[in-house]
């Protein structure tokens, strides 16, 4: 299978290990990735606050590029997925609006025809590849490992743009993957809540309090690690956990894995190749327990 790859800015910038891990596991899953070097940022919802039409136009531009490649888009970022889905939802339900957008794209010689259906790697796994295929590739099951899912808001809400009515399996996709990897799901109410990243520069105390809450909650439930399909959640839950520990005045030390890293571990890929040594919160105890050194 071949997808137009949209890694998102953070996987290219702040979390290069995610990009690397995603490429490695896609190779094994037989997913061919076609880069789109001219694609812009989705706007991450922030740009949309200031100018929604601009945001939608930028996304339509990316969609048009994928249409030209004759491929569907795959992303590895919950936020990118959500923002693209919302933009697509608005444009597909209102042809007049889409026409306005296309007027702007015409200058660059692009046109979005409305056929894009961007999918996060998590959804591609469940819907296009199938978990059977993943099962076949597992050489080092994560038996005895307790993993707590953390979706990222944009992969869960709003449900209409994310087409949850037609795809109810998307609401439990992460748990299904965890079980496929041989690990045990740690269930808790925080799994679909906010990591705090969007207000990090605006109200750091609150942002860090959210990190403290979720990481402490799963710690108390005996989790070995959290697993997230969103690089922004990863940035906050991992990078700001030291501050969260200070703010909450307790040790948490919860490793935060990107989705492809957890899959890679179960596929027998090495700790180094998955970039697990690059995390702020040590993943050493976890990888030792898995038998990955």
């Amino acid at each position: 299978m071949k997808y137009a790859f949209f890694p998102g800015c953070v996987a290219r910038g702040g979390c290069p290990e995610l990009y690397q891990a995603a490429k490695l596991i896609c190779q094994r899953l037989g997913i061919e990735l076609q880069e789109m070097p001219g694609a812009s940022c989705t706007g991450a919802g922030v740009l949309q606050e200031k100018n929604e039409f601009l945001g939608d136009t930028l996304n339509a531009r990316t969609f048009a590029m994928a249409e030209d490649l004759g491929m569907q888009i795959m992303t590895i970022c919950s936020t990118c997925q959500g923002v693209m889905s919302q933009a697509n939802f608005r444009m597909r339900k209102d042809p007049e609006y889409l026409a306005r957008v296309n007027k702007e794209l015409a200058e660059e010689g692009l046109e979005y025809k409305g056929t894009a259906d961007p999918k996060h790697l998590l959804w591609v796994l469940i819907e296009d590849i199938g978990l059977e295929k993943l099962t076949e590739l597992i050489t080092r099951p994560l038996a005895g490992i307790r993993l707590a899912p953390f979706y990222g808001c944009y992969l869960i809400r709003p449900t209409d743009a994310l087409d949850m009515a037609d795809h109810p399996e998307r609401l439990t996709a992460l748990e299904q993957v965890i079980e496929t990897l041989g690990a045990t799901v740690v269930d808790y109410s925080g799994k679909t809540r906010c990591c705090g990243f969007p207000i990090l520069t605006i109200n750091e105390t609150n942002s860090v309090a959210m990190v403290a809450k979720h990481t402490s909650d799963v710690k108390d439930l005996g989790a070995d690690a959290m697993i997230t399909p969103c690089p922004l959640c990863h940035l906050n839950l991992d990078g700001y956990q030291p501050k969260a520990q200070a703010q909450a005045n307790r040790k948490i030390e919860m490793p935060i894995l990107h989705l492809p890293q957890a899959i890679g571990l179960a596929m027998g890929i090495s700790r180094q190749e998955l970039g697990l040594q690059k995390h702020i919160m040590s993943t050493k105890a976890l990888t030792l327990k898995v038998g990955a050194g």
């Binding site: 940022c41 922030v46 606050e49 520069t201 605006i202």
Partner: peptide, 22 residues
């Protein structure tokens, strides 16, 4: 406000380089 600057900075950066520089 931090929030307004955040939004404006975001647009500035994307408007300059096409992608986000954290």
């Amino acid at each position: 406000s931090n929030g307004a600057r955040h939004a404006e900075a975001f647009v500035d950066i994307v408007g300059h380089s096409g992608s986000l520089n954290e």
